[in-house]
Each structure stands twice: as C-alpha cells, then as structure tokens.
Simulated assay, not measured.
Amino acid sequence: MAERDVFLTLEGLKKLENELDELKSVKRREIADRIKQALAFGDISENSEYDQAKNEQGQLEERIAKLEMILRNAKLIDDEDISTDVVSIGSKVIVKDLEYDEEMEYTIVGSAEADPYEGKISNESPVGRALLGKKEEEIVEVHVPDGLIKYQILSITR
C-alpha cells in the first residue's frame, strides 16, 4: 500500500493517538490473556475460544499498523491556516440543498477522520471534493450515484 499524506485536525490527531494507545496498552493485553486462557483448555485443534482470540489478535494488529501508518504520514491542519474565503480542509461549511431547501453543516476533514454521522466529510468524498476551493454564495453541483445534487454555500468558518 502506497503511503500518502493524511490530513488531520488537532482533534482528529488526538483521537487517533488515544485509540492507538488504548489498543497497544489495553486491548493487546486482554487478547493475550484470552489466548492464554484458551491454551489452558488443552488441544487447540478444536478450540473455538483460541481461534476467535487469534482472529481478534490479527484484526487488532492490523488496526494498530494502519493507525501507525496514518500517524506517520499525518499532516496537521492548523486552525490559523484555514481560510474562510474558500472551502479548504478544516473548513466548516453550511450549505443549502437547493432541491429540498434544507441546510446542512459539514466539516471538511481528511479521509482518516471522516465521520458522516458527526458531519465530518472527507475531502475525497464527492461532496467534499466538489466544495473544495469554492466561495460563499457559490452553487456547487455534486455528482452522486443517484444523479446531481446542487448546494449553495451559505457560510465558511473555521
């Protein structure tokens, strides 16, 4: 997997660092203890507890490796560098869906930090990509699987 820059806000960076710390210091130990208990049952050829714990260990190590790669390639987005003239990574944008006359607020973040349920959309998503570089009052067309969505940018803040 090719490594590339990962854009993170300070909040996102701290969240990922805390998750990595939790996985390394707590979860690793919990899984190691479960493996040790499963081994105590004897024959591991038909030991479902052992198999499950080993699978979880593999998933845990994969997540740790991914987080370490993200943090190694992290580019911190400084609030002071976020322009309010145009949409950029780190911007909070209020848009109006012109078809449904609804307002939505999005924060444009890097893909590692995206969480649509919290209104954080990736700069690589169709909406995020379409909003980048645009100014207030501009109308943005976003091509999505269901067709075309038109948004008007109402405000851009940090």
Rank of each mutant, 00 (worst) to 15 (best):
R4W: 06
R4G: 13
R4Y: 11
D5H: 10
V6A: 08
F7N: 01
F7I: 01
L8W: 10
T9E: 01
L10T: 00
G12R: 03
L13P: 00
E17H: 01
E17M: 05
N18W: 07
D21C: 07
K24C: 03
R29K: 14
E30Q: 14
I31T: 06
A32T: 01
D33V: 09
D33F: 02
D33I: 09
R34N: 15
A38H: 04
A38R: 02
L39K: 15
F41M: 15
D43W: 06
I44G: 03
S45G: 04
E46A: 12
N47D: 06
S48P: 15
D51T: 00
K54Y: 08
N55S: 14
E61A: 08
E61P: 05
E62V: 00
R63P: 09
R63K: 15
K66H: 14
L67E: 07
L67Q: 06
M69N: 14
I70D: 12
I70G: 08
I70C: 06
N73I: 11
K75Y: 09
I77L: 11
I77N: 05
I82A: 11
D85N: 11
V86Y: 15
G90V: 03
S91Y: 06
K92W: 09
V93F: 04
V95T: 03
K96H: 05
K96G: 03
D97A: 10
L98A: 02
L98K: 02
L98S: 02
E99V: 04
E99M: 10
D101S: 11
D101Y: 04
E102L: 08
E102G: 00
E103Y: 10
E103N: 12
M104N: 13
E105V: 11
V109C: 09
V109I: 02
G110I: 07
S111N: 11
S111R: 03
S111I: 04
E113R: 06
P116W: 04
P116T: 04
G119P: 10
K120P: 05
S122L: 07
E124W: 04
E124I: 05
V127A: 14
A130E: 10
L131S: 09
K134N: 05
E136N: 08
I139S: 05
V140A: 07
V140S: 08
V140M: 09
V140R: 12
V142H: 01
V142G: 01
V142Y: 02
V142R: 00
V142P: 01
V142W: 01
H143P: 00
H143T: 12
H143G: 02
P145Q: 02
D146F: 05
D146Y: 07
G147E: 07
L148N: 14
Y151N: 00
Q152T: 14
I153V: 01
I153H: 08
I153M: 08
L154G: 00
L154F: 06
S155D: 14
